[in-house]
Design a binder for these strands. Sequence first.
DNA 1: CTTGAAAGCTCTGTAAG
DNA 2: CTTACAGAGCTTTCAAG
Lengths: 181, 181
Amino acid sequence: MPNPEKTEAVRDKVQAARPLDAFDRKILGELAVDAGLSYAELGNRAGLSAPAVHERVKRLRATGRIRGTVAMLDGPATGKPFLAFVHVDTSGGSKSRTFKALSELPELEEIHSVAGDTCTLLKVRCASSRALEGLLARLYAIPGVKGTRSYVVLSTYLERTPQAGITEALEEEHYEPSTSS
Amino acid sequence: MPNPEKTEAVRDKVQAARPLDAFDRKILGELAVDAGLSYAELGNRAGLSAPAVHERVKRLRATGRIRGTVAMLDGPATGKPFLAFVHVDTSGGSKSRTFKALSELPELEEIHSVAGDTCTLLKVRCASSRALEGLLARLYAIPGVKGTRSYVVLSTYLERTPQAGITEALEEEHYEPSTSS
DNA sequence: CTTGAAAGCTCTGTAAG
DNA sequence: CTTACAGAGCTTTCAAG
């Protein structure tokens, strides 16, 4: 038989960290493509009313699912046609301070610490190869930087923000523990 | 929030458009961080009136400098805590069709063709290492895929959209071609 | 470019079912 | 969750300097 007290007590925590349902996923997916949609239109696409959608979006923002709404700038059209990924090998040195300093440069779009045959991975978008040369010079001036490998992007076929994952395509390959057989 | 019309094939208009001035750069920089700003606030920060800012933003959209406004979703908070970059070595095969097929997967955020010791670079965000395993399995099923190298992201220190480049830091190292004309 | 004003739409909250 | 009703604020356009 059910336990009322326990169910009540757990409910609040569940609400606070409620997993995304199909509506949330749909909303996130739409906003990830176009954040300029009105709540009315968003409601139509998600199958909800405008107030309901508004409430959900507010919650998605408050819980950090939506980090913010930003303008997607076109690199080439804004004077930065040169895109490259730079692998940086380091040994010692203060990563935090280095990363903070790098963040100041508008040319840097991403800084990741990665596992593999390299330590740090940078995404750089700048005006020219000369600008990249300047950036690399700065990198080598940082204590602990042993070497870099640059991958210059020739053409970009896809570039978008995280999708909400309406279709859990890759999840379908999940294994089934043991039940049926 | 404005209701932007879908801009389709406006990429060629960029050439005919005037180069960006300091006002445009400031506006782009602000919108790249927060596209939800009102034109009044945007005007304050840029040092222009609201109608003037509105006119410029409209032009920046029409000329393709602003590709769109999107919601930035938090990967971990939306059920995709696993981020990785995958280098793919290929030989032959139809890239266009392969890339198109890959674009359908919500886990894929970026697809670049690069120069260097690898051919294609992917940015993948998914639910788990198992999901990445599933993606790699699909990759190897594609004719022409010789091998992959995955760089699993341990932590992300910076991740943002292209900045307008208010400060042309790395540009200072530009050479001066010659004269006016 | 500016200021000012007017019209329209969206957001946002409230209320009731 | 839904529909409905308002007030407030912002967008958008127009006019005139």
